[in-house]
Design a protein around this nucleic acid. Sequence first.
DNA 1: TCCTAATAGTGTGTATCTGACACGATTATA
DNA 2: TATAATCGTGTCAGATACACACTATTAGGA
Lengths: 228, 228
Amino acid sequence: MTTGYFPPDRPALTVDVVIFRLREGQLETLLIRRAALPYKGRWAIPGGFVRADESLDAAARRELLEETGIKDVFLEQLYTFGDPRRDPRGRVVTVAYFALITAAQPPPHAGDDAAEARWHTMPSLPELAFDHKQILAYALRRLRYKLEYTAVGFELLSDEFTLAELQAAYEIILDEPLDKRNFRRRLLEANVIEETGKYRSGQVGPRAQLYRYRTDAVAEVKARRLFP
Amino acid sequence: MTTGYFPPDRPALTVDVVIFRLREGQLETLLIRRAALPYKGRWAIPGGFVRADESLDAAARRELLEETGIKDVFLEQLYTFGDPRRDPRGRVVTVAYFALITAAQPPPHAGDDAAEARWHTMPSLPELAFDHKQILAYALRRLRYKLEYTAVGFELLSDEFTLAELQAAYEIILDEPLDKRNFRRRLLEANVIEETGKYRSGQVGPRAQLYRYRTDAVAEVKARRLFP
DNA sequence: TCCTAATAGTGTGTATCTGACACGATTATA
DNA sequence: TATAATCGTGTCAGATACACACTATTAGGA
Protein backbone atom coordinates (compact mmCIF):
# COMPACT_ATOMS: atom_id res chain seq x y z
CA MET A 1 0.00 0.00 0.00
CA THR A 2 1.64 3.09 -1.27
CA THR A 3 5.27 2.25 -0.85
CA GLY A 4 8.18 4.66 -1.07
CA TYR A 5 8.14 4.05 -4.79
CA PHE A 6 5.95 6.40 -6.78
CA PRO A 7 4.94 5.34 -10.26
CA PRO A 8 5.92 7.70 -13.08
CA ASP A 9 3.09 6.90 -15.50
CA ARG A 10 -0.11 7.79 -13.75
CA PRO A 11 -3.62 7.68 -15.08
CA ALA A 12 -5.35 10.99 -15.63
CA LEU A 13 -8.16 11.54 -13.16
CA THR A 14 -11.48 13.16 -14.00
CA VAL A 15 -14.82 13.63 -12.35
CA ASP A 16 -18.04 13.26 -14.32
CA VAL A 17 -21.25 14.59 -12.86
CA VAL A 18 -24.59 13.15 -13.84
CA ILE A 19 -27.11 15.92 -13.21
CA PHE A 20 -30.79 15.10 -12.87
CA ARG A 21 -33.78 17.35 -12.67
CA LEU A 22 -37.53 16.97 -12.96
CA ARG A 23 -39.41 19.15 -15.39
CA GLU A 24 -42.86 18.95 -16.87
CA GLY A 25 -43.40 15.44 -15.70
CA GLN A 26 -40.12 14.14 -17.05
CA LEU A 27 -36.78 13.22 -15.63
CA GLU A 28 -34.03 15.10 -17.43
CA THR A 29 -30.27 14.91 -17.44
CA LEU A 30 -27.81 17.53 -18.61
CA LEU A 31 -25.48 16.54 -21.40
CA ILE A 32 -22.85 18.52 -23.26
CA ARG A 33 -21.87 18.10 -26.86
CA ARG A 34 -18.17 17.51 -27.18
CA ALA A 35 -16.26 20.21 -29.05
CA ALA A 36 -13.00 18.27 -29.29
CA LEU A 37 -11.76 14.87 -30.29
CA PRO A 38 -12.23 12.11 -29.41
CA TYR A 39 -15.96 11.66 -29.81
CA LYS A 40 -16.21 15.18 -31.24
CA GLY A 41 -19.86 16.08 -31.68
CA ARG A 42 -21.06 13.30 -29.40
CA TRP A 43 -23.05 13.99 -26.27
CA ALA A 44 -21.36 13.35 -22.96
CA ILE A 45 -21.81 13.71 -19.22
CA PRO A 46 -20.29 16.98 -18.01
CA GLY A 47 -17.00 16.61 -16.21
CA GLY A 48 -13.36 17.48 -16.20
CA PHE A 49 -9.95 16.91 -14.70
CA VAL A 50 -9.40 16.92 -10.99
CA ARG A 51 -7.00 19.69 -10.08
CA ALA A 52 -3.91 19.07 -8.04
CA ASP A 53 -5.14 20.78 -4.92
CA GLU A 54 -8.82 20.00 -4.81
CA SER A 55 -10.70 17.08 -3.31
CA LEU A 56 -12.88 14.90 -5.50
CA ASP A 57 -16.04 16.38 -4.02
CA ALA A 58 -14.71 19.87 -4.66
CA ALA A 59 -13.89 18.97 -8.25
CA ALA A 60 -17.39 17.65 -8.80
CA ARG A 61 -18.91 20.73 -7.23
CA ARG A 62 -16.74 22.94 -9.41
CA GLU A 63 -17.75 21.11 -12.56
CA LEU A 64 -21.37 21.42 -11.60
CA LEU A 65 -20.96 25.12 -11.04
CA GLU A 66 -19.16 25.61 -14.33
CA GLU A 67 -21.74 23.69 -16.30
CA THR A 68 -24.93 24.89 -14.68
CA GLY A 69 -23.98 27.92 -12.64
CA ILE A 70 -25.52 26.42 -9.54
CA LYS A 71 -24.22 25.29 -6.20
CA ASP A 72 -25.44 23.99 -2.88
CA VAL A 73 -27.26 21.02 -4.28
CA PHE A 74 -27.39 17.34 -3.53
CA LEU A 75 -24.19 15.75 -4.77
CA GLU A 76 -22.99 12.24 -4.09
CA GLN A 77 -20.17 10.04 -5.27
CA LEU A 78 -21.44 7.24 -7.44
CA TYR A 79 -18.71 4.92 -8.61
CA THR A 80 -15.24 5.05 -10.07
CA PHE A 81 -14.79 3.79 -13.60
CA GLY A 82 -11.29 2.78 -14.55
CA ASP A 83 -11.25 0.43 -17.50
CA PRO A 84 -7.87 0.96 -19.21
CA ARG A 85 -9.54 1.36 -22.59
CA ARG A 86 -12.43 3.60 -21.67
CA ASP A 87 -10.70 6.62 -23.23
CA PRO A 88 -8.90 6.24 -26.57
CA ARG A 89 -6.40 8.97 -25.66
CA GLY A 90 -4.90 6.99 -22.85
CA ARG A 91 -5.54 5.97 -19.32
CA VAL A 92 -8.26 8.10 -17.77
CA VAL A 93 -9.95 7.07 -14.57
CA THR A 94 -13.14 8.91 -13.75
CA VAL A 95 -14.91 9.31 -10.46
CA ALA A 96 -18.59 9.62 -11.28
CA TYR A 97 -20.92 11.74 -9.17
CA PHE A 98 -24.59 12.40 -9.35
CA ALA A 99 -26.39 15.61 -8.55
CA LEU A 100 -30.04 16.42 -8.07
CA ILE A 101 -31.27 19.92 -8.76
CA THR A 102 -34.61 21.67 -8.91
CA ALA A 103 -36.15 22.75 -12.17
CA ALA A 104 -36.13 26.40 -11.10
CA GLN A 105 -32.48 26.94 -11.87
CA PRO A 106 -30.69 29.10 -14.43
CA PRO A 107 -30.20 27.53 -17.86
CA PRO A 108 -26.91 25.76 -18.51
CA HIS A 109 -24.14 27.56 -20.34
CA ALA A 110 -21.72 25.56 -22.42
CA GLY A 111 -18.15 25.65 -21.12
CA ASP A 112 -14.95 25.92 -23.13
CA ASP A 113 -14.82 22.28 -23.91
CA ALA A 114 -18.45 21.95 -24.90
CA ALA A 115 -20.09 23.07 -28.11
CA GLU A 116 -23.48 23.00 -26.46
CA ALA A 117 -25.17 22.00 -23.23
CA ARG A 118 -28.73 20.71 -23.22
CA TRP A 119 -31.22 18.92 -21.06
CA HIS A 120 -32.23 15.52 -22.36
CA THR A 121 -35.29 13.55 -21.38
CA MET A 122 -34.72 10.20 -19.77
CA PRO A 123 -34.58 7.47 -20.70
CA SER A 124 -34.40 8.18 -24.45
CA LEU A 125 -30.93 9.57 -24.96
CA PRO A 126 -28.60 10.00 -27.90
CA GLU A 127 -25.47 7.91 -28.26
CA LEU A 128 -22.97 8.96 -25.65
CA ALA A 129 -19.21 9.33 -25.68
CA PHE A 130 -16.83 7.01 -23.82
CA ASP A 131 -18.56 4.68 -21.33
CA HIS A 132 -21.03 7.37 -20.41
CA LYS A 133 -24.06 5.28 -21.25
CA GLN A 134 -22.99 2.85 -18.59
CA ILE A 135 -22.36 5.62 -16.08
CA LEU A 136 -25.77 7.14 -16.70
CA ALA A 137 -27.50 3.81 -16.34
CA TYR A 138 -25.74 3.32 -13.05
CA ALA A 139 -26.77 6.79 -11.87
CA LEU A 140 -30.40 6.14 -12.70
CA ARG A 141 -30.35 2.86 -10.87
CA ARG A 142 -28.87 4.57 -7.83
CA LEU A 143 -31.43 7.36 -7.97
CA ARG A 144 -34.31 4.89 -7.97
CA TYR A 145 -32.74 2.91 -5.22
CA LYS A 146 -32.15 5.94 -3.05
CA LEU A 147 -35.65 7.15 -3.63
CA GLU A 148 -37.09 3.98 -2.18
CA TYR A 149 -34.95 3.98 0.90
CA THR A 150 -34.29 7.59 1.67
CA ALA A 151 -35.99 10.92 1.39
CA VAL A 152 -33.86 12.12 -1.47
CA GLY A 153 -36.87 12.99 -3.62
CA PHE A 154 -37.09 16.43 -2.06
CA GLU A 155 -33.84 17.45 -3.67
CA LEU A 156 -35.60 17.58 -7.02
CA LEU A 157 -38.39 19.87 -5.82
CA SER A 158 -38.36 23.45 -4.68
CA ASP A 159 -38.23 24.20 -0.96
CA GLU A 160 -41.98 24.18 -0.61
CA PHE A 161 -44.06 21.63 -2.41
CA THR A 162 -47.42 19.94 -2.33
CA LEU A 163 -47.87 16.29 -1.65
CA ALA A 164 -49.21 15.86 -5.15
CA GLU A 165 -46.02 17.29 -6.58
CA LEU A 166 -43.94 15.00 -4.42
CA GLN A 167 -45.97 11.99 -5.40
CA ALA A 168 -45.63 12.91 -9.06
CA ALA A 169 -41.87 13.08 -8.63
CA TYR A 170 -41.78 9.61 -7.14
CA GLU A 171 -44.01 8.23 -9.87
CA ILE A 172 -41.89 9.69 -12.63
CA ILE A 173 -38.66 8.33 -11.29
CA LEU A 174 -39.90 4.96 -10.14
CA ASP A 175 -41.99 4.74 -13.28
CA GLU A 176 -45.01 3.29 -11.56
CA PRO A 177 -48.24 4.72 -10.17
CA LEU A 178 -48.58 5.08 -6.41
CA ASP A 179 -51.75 5.18 -4.36
CA LYS A 180 -52.45 8.70 -3.17
CA ARG A 181 -53.73 7.87 0.29
CA ASN A 182 -51.03 5.35 1.05
CA PHE A 183 -48.38 7.71 -0.23
CA ARG A 184 -49.57 10.52 2.02
CA ARG A 185 -49.92 8.28 5.00
CA ARG A 186 -46.44 6.86 4.71
CA LEU A 187 -44.77 10.14 4.11
CA LEU A 188 -46.50 11.82 7.01
CA GLU A 189 -45.82 8.88 9.30
CA ALA A 190 -42.18 8.91 8.30
CA ASN A 191 -42.09 12.34 9.85
CA VAL A 192 -39.83 13.88 7.27
CA ILE A 193 -42.01 16.73 6.10
CA GLU A 194 -43.91 19.43 7.89
CA GLU A 195 -46.66 21.83 6.93
CA THR A 196 -45.61 25.33 6.08
CA GLY A 197 -49.10 26.70 6.73
CA LYS A 198 -49.09 28.13 3.23
CA TYR A 199 -51.07 27.02 0.24
CA ARG A 200 -50.58 26.72 -3.45
CA SER A 201 -53.54 27.91 -5.47
CA GLY A 202 -53.98 28.81 -9.08
CA GLN A 203 -54.97 25.44 -10.44
CA VAL A 204 -58.54 24.32 -10.75
CA GLY A 205 -59.72 22.79 -7.51
CA PRO A 206 -59.07 23.36 -3.87
CA ARG A 207 -55.85 24.92 -2.63
CA ALA A 208 -53.09 22.46 -1.83
CA GLN A 209 -51.19 22.58 1.42
CA LEU A 210 -47.51 23.33 1.04
CA TYR A 211 -44.98 21.24 2.89
CA ARG A 212 -41.31 21.54 3.50
CA TYR A 213 -38.63 18.98 4.18
CA ARG A 214 -37.63 18.66 7.81
CA THR A 215 -33.87 18.88 7.69
CA ASP A 216 -33.60 17.68 11.26
CA ALA A 217 -35.13 14.38 10.24
CA VAL A 218 -32.63 13.23 7.67
CA ALA A 219 -30.75 10.64 9.63
CA GLU A 220 -33.91 9.10 10.96
CA VAL A 221 -35.34 8.47 7.53
CA LYS A 222 -32.28 6.94 6.06
CA ALA A 223 -32.65 4.10 8.48
CA ARG A 224 -36.08 2.91 7.39
CA ARG A 225 -37.31 1.85 4.06
CA LEU A 226 -39.76 4.34 2.77
CA PHE A 227 -41.61 2.27 0.18
CA PRO A 228 -41.29 -1.40 0.84
CA MET B 1 -15.31 15.84 -19.35
CA THR B 2 -11.89 15.16 -20.61
CA THR B 3 -11.05 17.85 -23.12
CA GLY B 4 -8.19 17.77 -25.61
CA TYR B 5 -5.96 19.18 -22.87
CA PHE B 6 -4.29 16.61 -20.66
CA PRO B 7 -2.99 17.76 -17.30
CA PRO B 8 0.72 17.17 -16.63
CA ASP B 9 0.55 16.80 -12.85
CA ARG B 10 -1.65 13.86 -12.10
CA PRO B 11 -2.49 12.31 -8.78
CA ALA B 12 -1.09 8.88 -8.09
CA LEU B 13 -3.80 6.23 -8.00
CA THR B 14 -3.94 3.33 -5.59
CA VAL B 15 -6.38 0.66 -4.58
CA ASP B 16 -6.81 -0.33 -0.96
CA VAL B 17 -8.57 -3.57 -0.13
CA VAL B 18 -10.33 -4.04 3.18
CA ILE B 19 -10.41 -7.80 3.76
CA PHE B 20 -12.86 -9.30 6.23
CA ARG B 21 -13.16 -12.78 7.55
CA LEU B 22 -14.96 -14.50 10.38
CA ARG B 23 -13.00 -16.63 12.79
CA GLU B 24 -13.77 -18.03 16.20
CA GLY B 25 -16.78 -15.87 16.63
CA GLN B 26 -15.04 -12.66 15.68
CA LEU B 27 -14.92 -10.44 12.66
CA GLU B 28 -11.34 -9.91 11.56
CA THR B 29 -9.63 -7.67 9.06
CA LEU B 30 -6.20 -8.07 7.54
CA LEU B 31 -3.74 -5.25 8.15
CA ILE B 32 -0.14 -4.85 7.13
CA ARG B 33 2.52 -3.07 9.07
CA ARG B 34 4.18 -0.44 6.93
CA ALA B 35 7.88 -1.01 6.25
CA ALA B 36 8.52 2.39 4.70
CA LEU B 37 7.90 6.02 5.41
CA PRO B 38 5.52 7.72 5.83
CA TYR B 39 3.76 6.07 8.75
CA LYS B 40 6.56 3.53 9.00
CA GLY B 41 5.62 0.89 11.56
CA ARG B 42 1.93 1.82 11.52
CA TRP B 43 -0.73 -0.64 10.52
CA ALA B 44 -2.51 -0.02 7.24
CA ILE B 45 -5.04 -1.53 4.89
CA PRO B 46 -3.30 -3.56 2.18
CA GLY B 47 -3.17 -1.88 -1.20
CA GLY B 48 -0.94 -0.56 -3.91
CA PHE B 49 -0.64 1.42 -7.09
CA VAL B 50 -2.86 0.76 -10.05
CA ARG B 51 -0.78 -0.34 -13.01
CA ALA B 52 -1.02 1.37 -16.33
CA ASP B 53 -2.79 -1.45 -18.11
CA GLU B 54 -5.06 -2.93 -15.49
CA SER B 55 -8.59 -2.07 -14.50
CA LEU B 56 -9.38 -1.01 -10.95
CA ASP B 57 -11.06 -4.31 -10.20
CA ALA B 58 -8.04 -6.14 -11.56
CA ALA B 59 -5.72 -4.07 -9.41
CA ALA B 60 -7.78 -4.84 -6.33
CA ARG B 61 -7.84 -8.53 -7.16
CA ARG B 62 -4.09 -8.50 -7.70
CA GLU B 63 -3.46 -6.82 -4.36
CA LEU B 64 -5.69 -9.32 -2.65
CA LEU B 65 -3.79 -12.16 -4.26
CA GLU B 66 -0.44 -10.68 -3.34
CA GLU B 67 -1.40 -10.11 0.26
CA THR B 68 -3.34 -13.24 1.01
CA GLY B 69 -2.58 -15.64 -1.80
CA ILE B 70 -6.25 -16.12 -2.52
CA LYS B 71 -8.52 -15.35 -5.42
CA ASP B 72 -12.08 -15.88 -6.55
CA VAL B 73 -13.67 -14.18 -3.59
CA PHE B 74 -16.30 -11.56 -3.08
CA LEU B 75 -14.80 -8.19 -4.00
CA GLU B 76 -16.66 -4.92 -4.40
CA GLN B 77 -15.74 -1.32 -4.94
CA LEU B 78 -16.44 0.75 -1.87
CA TYR B 79 -15.65 4.40 -2.32
CA THR B 80 -12.91 6.62 -3.68
CA PHE B 81 -11.02 8.77 -1.24
CA GLY B 82 -9.28 11.78 -2.70
CA ASP B 83 -8.57 14.41 -0.11
CA PRO B 84 -5.50 16.31 -1.32
CA ARG B 85 -3.78 15.92 2.04
CA ARG B 86 -4.57 12.31 2.78
CA ASP B 87 -1.00 11.29 1.91
CA PRO B 88 1.92 13.45 3.11
CA ARG B 89 4.04 12.44 0.10
CA GLY B 90 1.76 14.16 -2.38
CA ARG B 91 -1.51 13.67 -4.11
CA VAL B 92 -2.66 10.09 -3.89
CA VAL B 93 -6.22 9.12 -4.69
CA THR B 94 -7.28 5.68 -3.57
CA VAL B 95 -10.12 3.53 -4.73
CA ALA B 96 -11.16 1.45 -1.76
CA TYR B 97 -12.52 -2.08 -2.18
CA PHE B 98 -13.78 -4.59 0.28
CA ALA B 99 -13.40 -8.34 0.13
CA LEU B 100 -15.00 -11.15 2.07
CA ILE B 101 -13.18 -14.43 2.48
CA THR B 102 -13.68 -17.63 4.41
CA ALA B 103 -11.60 -18.48 7.44
CA ALA B 104 -10.25 -21.63 5.78
CA GLN B 105 -7.70 -19.82 3.68
CA PRO B 106 -3.91 -19.86 3.65
CA PRO B 107 -2.22 -17.46 6.09
CA PRO B 108 -1.21 -14.04 4.77
CA HIS B 109 2.34 -13.46 3.70
CA ALA B 110 3.81 -10.00 4.00
CA GLY B 111 4.65 -8.39 0.65
CA ASP B 112 7.70 -6.29 -0.20
CA ASP B 113 6.24 -3.15 1.20
CA ALA B 114 4.99 -4.68 4.41
CA ALA B 115 7.01 -5.65 7.45
CA GLU B 116 4.24 -7.91 8.65
CA ALA B 117 0.69 -8.91 7.82
CA ARG B 118 -1.74 -9.87 10.55
CA TRP B 119 -5.39 -10.43 11.20
CA HIS B 120 -6.91 -7.98 13.64
CA THR B 121 -10.12 -8.39 15.53
CA MET B 122 -12.83 -5.86 14.88
CA PRO B 123 -13.66 -3.38 16.13
CA SER B 124 -10.65 -2.86 18.41
CA LEU B 125 -7.86 -1.90 16.06
CA PRO B 126 -4.50 -0.16 16.40
CA GLU B 127 -3.94 3.32 15.07
CA LEU B 128 -3.93 3.23 11.32
CA ALA B 129 -1.90 5.05 8.68
CA PHE B 130 -3.33 7.72 6.38
CA ASP B 131 -7.13 7.97 6.44
CA HIS B 132 -7.43 4.22 6.78
CA LYS B 133 -9.46 4.39 9.94
CA GLN B 134 -12.14 6.20 8.00
CA ILE B 135 -11.96 3.72 5.13
CA LEU B 136 -12.33 0.79 7.49
CA ALA B 137 -15.27 2.35 9.25
CA TYR B 138 -16.91 2.87 5.91
CA ALA B 139 -16.27 -0.74 4.92
CA LEU B 140 -17.80 -2.06 8.12
CA ARG B 141 -20.88 0.08 7.65
CA ARG B 142 -21.25 -1.23 4.13
CA LEU B 143 -20.81 -4.82 5.26
CA ARG B 144 -23.56 -4.48 7.83
CA TYR B 145 -25.78 -2.76 5.38
CA LYS B 146 -25.29 -5.38 2.70
CA LEU B 147 -25.88 -8.16 5.16
CA GLU B 148 -29.32 -6.87 5.97
CA TYR B 149 -30.37 -6.47 2.38
CA THR B 150 -28.55 -9.15 0.49
CA ALA B 151 -27.29 -12.66 0.98
CA VAL B 152 -23.65 -11.66 1.20
CA GLY B 153 -23.18 -13.45 4.51
CA PHE B 154 -22.41 -16.69 2.73
CA GLU B 155 -19.20 -15.25 1.37
CA LEU B 156 -17.73 -15.47 4.84
CA LEU B 157 -18.57 -19.14 5.35
CA SER B 158 -17.30 -22.26 3.66
CA ASP B 159 -19.32 -23.78 0.83
CA GLU B 160 -21.35 -25.95 3.15
CA PHE B 161 -22.57 -24.62 6.44
CA THR B 162 -25.19 -25.20 9.08
CA LEU B 163 -27.94 -22.75 9.83
CA ALA B 164 -26.46 -22.23 13.27
CA GLU B 165 -23.15 -21.19 11.73
CA LEU B 166 -24.90 -18.81 9.38
CA GLN B 167 -26.90 -17.30 12.20
CA ALA B 168 -23.76 -16.88 14.27
CA ALA B 169 -22.15 -15.01 11.37
CA TYR B 170 -25.07 -12.64 11.16
CA GLU B 171 -25.07 -12.08 14.89
CA ILE B 172 -21.37 -11.31 15.00
CA ILE B 173 -21.50 -8.79 12.22
CA LEU B 174 -24.78 -7.14 13.11
CA ASP B 175 -23.77 -7.31 16.74
CA GLU B 176 -27.20 -8.31 17.96
CA PRO B 177 -28.86 -11.60 18.83
CA LEU B 178 -31.36 -13.05 16.38
CA ASP B 179 -34.23 -15.40 17.10
CA LYS B 180 -33.39 -18.89 15.89
CA ARG B 181 -36.80 -19.85 14.62
CA ASN B 182 -37.42 -16.59 12.84
CA PHE B 183 -33.96 -16.66 11.32
CA ARG B 184 -34.41 -20.13 9.92
CA ARG B 185 -37.87 -19.42 8.64
CA ARG B 186 -36.86 -16.26 6.83
CA LEU B 187 -33.80 -17.73 5.26
CA LEU B 188 -35.61 -20.79 4.03
CA GLU B 189 -38.50 -18.73 2.71
CA ALA B 190 -36.09 -16.43 0.92
CA ASN B 191 -35.14 -19.50 -1.07
CA VAL B 192 -31.45 -18.74 -1.19
CA ILE B 193 -30.07 -21.88 0.38
CA GLU B 194 -30.65 -25.55 -0.25
CA GLU B 195 -29.95 -28.71 1.69
CA THR B 196 -26.92 -30.67 0.70
CA GLY B 197 -28.26 -33.85 2.28
CA LYS B 198 -25.11 -34.05 4.34
CA TYR B 199 -24.70 -33.49 8.05
CA ARG B 200 -22.16 -32.04 10.37
CA SER B 201 -21.60 -34.07 13.49
CA GLY B 202 -18.92 -34.12 16.10
CA GLN B 203 -20.36 -31.66 18.52
CA VAL B 204 -22.52 -32.68 21.41
CA GLY B 205 -26.11 -32.91 20.34
CA PRO B 206 -27.93 -33.95 17.22
CA ARG B 207 -26.28 -33.72 13.80
CA ALA B 208 -26.86 -30.48 11.98
CA GLN B 209 -28.05 -30.37 8.40
CA LEU B 210 -25.58 -28.81 5.98
CA TYR B 211 -26.79 -26.24 3.50
CA ARG B 212 -25.27 -24.59 0.52
CA TYR B 213 -25.91 -21.26 -1.12
CA ARG B 214 -28.06 -21.41 -4.23
CA THR B 215 -26.03 -19.46 -6.77
CA ASP B 216 -28.98 -19.28 -9.13
CA ALA B 217 -30.88 -17.26 -6.58
CA VAL B 218 -28.53 -14.33 -6.17
CA ALA B 219 -30.40 -11.75 -8.18
CA GLU B 220 -33.68 -12.64 -6.58
CA VAL B 221 -32.44 -12.03 -3.08
CA LYS B 222 -30.82 -8.75 -3.77
CA ALA B 223 -34.24 -7.36 -4.51
CA ARG B 224 -35.85 -8.08 -1.18
CA ARG B 225 -34.77 -7.07 2.22
CA LEU B 226 -33.71 -10.11 4.13
CA PHE B 227 -34.12 -8.84 7.65
CA PRO B 228 -36.60 -6.05 7.87
C1' DT C 1 -23.42 -48.47 30.13
C1' DC C 2 -25.68 -44.75 31.74
C1' DC C 3 -26.09 -39.99 32.80
C1' DT C 4 -25.36 -35.24 31.63
C1' DA C 5 -25.06 -31.35 28.93
C1' DA C 6 -25.17 -29.29 24.57
C1' DT C 7 -27.36 -28.58 20.37
C1' DA C 8 -30.90 -29.23 16.37
C1' DG C 9 -35.16 -28.62 14.91
C1' DT C 10 -39.95 -27.29 15.03
C1' DG C 11 -45.28 -24.06 15.31
C1' DT C 12 -48.58 -20.75 17.00
C1' DG C 13 -50.81 -16.76 18.39
C1' DT C 14 -50.68 -11.68 18.49
C1' DA C 15 -49.59 -7.32 16.96
C1' DT C 16 -48.21 -4.54 13.32
C1' DC C 17 -47.86 -3.23 8.64
C1' DT C 18 -49.43 -3.05 3.82
C1' DG C 19 -52.46 -2.37 0.15
C1' DA C 20 -56.76 -1.75 -2.02
C1' DC C 21 -60.31 1.23 -2.46
C1' DA C 22 -64.41 6.08 -3.15
C1' DC C 23 -66.32 10.34 -2.30
C1' DG C 24 -67.48 15.04 -0.81
C1' DA C 25 -65.61 19.76 -0.70
C1' DT C 26 -63.26 23.37 -3.08
C1' DT C 27 -61.96 26.50 -6.64
C1' DA C 28 -60.41 28.25 -11.46
C1' DT C 29 -62.26 28.80 -15.78
C1' DA C 30 -65.43 28.96 -19.46
C1' DT D 1 -73.36 29.85 -12.75
C1' DA D 2 -72.15 25.38 -14.44
C1' DT D 3 -68.25 22.40 -15.22
C1' DA D 4 -64.18 20.00 -14.50
C1' DA D 5 -60.12 19.37 -12.00
C1' DT D 6 -57.97 18.59 -7.83
C1' DC D 7 -57.49 18.20 -2.64
C1' DG D 8 -57.99 15.69 1.37
C1' DT D 9 -59.60 11.95 4.09
C1' DG D 10 -60.48 6.40 6.67
C1' DT D 11 -61.36 1.51 6.88
C1' DC D 12 -60.95 -3.19 6.45
C1' DA D 13 -58.82 -7.48 5.10
C1' DG D 14 -54.80 -9.90 4.24
C1' DA D 15 -49.93 -10.35 4.87
C1' DT D 16 -46.00 -9.97 7.60
C1' DA D 17 -43.18 -9.67 11.76
C1' DC D 18 -42.19 -10.94 16.32
C1' DA D 19 -42.10 -13.25 20.67
C1' DC D 20 -41.75 -17.43 22.68
C1' DA D 21 -40.48 -23.23 24.77
C1' DC D 22 -40.00 -27.86 24.32
C1' DT D 23 -38.54 -32.51 22.59
C1' DA D 24 -35.20 -35.43 20.34
C1' DT D 25 -30.53 -36.45 19.53
C1' DT D 26 -25.79 -37.23 20.37
C1' DA D 27 -20.86 -36.76 22.41
C1' DG D 28 -18.35 -37.32 26.27
C1' DG D 29 -17.42 -38.32 30.86
C1' DA D 30 -18.64 -40.87 35.10
